[in-house]
């Protein structure tokens, strides 16, 4: 912005460059160490990656992580989308009292604002008690999935809600006037309109699931070691190792890939929403 004097702009650049470097330094250290087994033995060495792909434990953990991420993201996106849709469409614009107005927001924000440790330990106790008294829900991928859906759906709801509040309410009136029943207007109006938010929300849900450690750690059972838990216990056992660095690099690469995909999807959505008024 031209309002910032030139000298200050240079200063900002000078301070920001090291901050960016600092943000990527640790990630690059993992990537570099994954190729060169140690600081004192430089050179490119793919041995760690080979070891990784032959390690049955790692592959099983990867499979569980993917199952968990996709399974929970599908349900989390479905529940989150319905929440975002319902709150933006059927909640009175002003007030609505405590039960309709404030309570749903309060419930949706709880998983977001609650410290993950409190979240995870609450679930640990709850699943333990349920298992003790009913025999259901023994700790494993299922309990982890339930916990993941609980923290994913509010984020998806926020994304979908943000998309729908920017929308002209007359569109829904129009579809009603054209004799579309609620189910038809949901399928042919709401779904196409929220599709970018839906895809964005789904990718966000997957990222959240892969990113989470604390909640997974406390809801996992002995047979449901996912990648983050595997890495954590490997670090606790033997400190750093080239194999863990290789695994870390692959996870970082995946997340950066998903992040870029998410960015491009939402950017296209923004561009399209900018185009709508121009067409109309």
């Amino acid at each position: 912005m031209s309002n910032i004097p030139r000298g200050i702009r240079r200063g900002l650049f000078g301070v920001s460059l090291p901050v960016y470097a600092l943000l990527y330094l640790p990630l690059s250290v993992i990537a570099i160490f994954s190729f060169a087994p140690s600081l004192h033995h430089p050179g490119v060495n793919l041995a760690a990656y080979g070891e990784l792909f032959n390690d049955a434990t790692v592959l099983a953990a990867l499979r569980r992580s993917i199952t968990l991420a996709f399974g929970s993201a599908i349900l989390g996106t479905a529940l989150g989308t319905l929440m975002g849709f319902g709150l933006s469409r059927f909640r009175p614009a002003k007030g609505g009292g405590f039960w309709v107005g404030a309570l749903p927001s309060l419930i949706i924000y709880t998983p977001i604002i609650m410290p993950s440790l409190v979240f995870g330990i609450s679930e640990l106790i709850f699943f333990n008690l349920v298992h003790e008294y009913t025999g259901l829900l023994s700790a494993g991928l299922l309990t982890m999935g339930i916990a993941h859906v609980t923290f994913q759906s509010p984020y998806v709801a926020l994304v979908v809600y943000a998309r729908l509040t920017g929308l002209d309410p007359n569109l829904f009136e129009a579809s009603h006037d054209l004799y579309a029943n609620p189910i038809k207007s949901f399928l042919y109006l709401t779904i196409p309109v929220v599709r970018p938010a839906l895809i964005g929300g789904f990718l966000l849900a997957i990222t959240l699931s892969i990113d989470d450690f604390t909640i997974s750690f406390f809801t996992a059972g002995p047979g449901s070691v996912t990648l983050p838990i595997y890495i954590y216990s490997a670090i606790a056992r033997k400190g750093s190792s080239p194999e863990i660095n290789a695994l870390g690099s692959l996870m970082i690469a995946t997340v950066i890939g998903v992040a870029l995909l998410y960015y491009f999807v939402t950017r296209r959505q923004q561009q399209r929403s900018r185009q709508i008024p121009a067409v109309a």
Binding site: F85, G86, R89, R91, P104, I107, T110, V118, E123, S153
Partner: peptide
């Protein structure tokens, strides 16, 4: 409107109540 609100938002809200608010209350 209120009925539709609970029909759409209900399942998600119920999920959060059952799997987070109730467990933290127990804790």
């Amino acid at each position: 409107r209120a009925w539709r609100l609970w029909l759409t938002s209900g399942p998600g809200l119920f999920w959060i109540i059952l799997f987070l608010l109730l467990p933290s209350g127990i804790m």
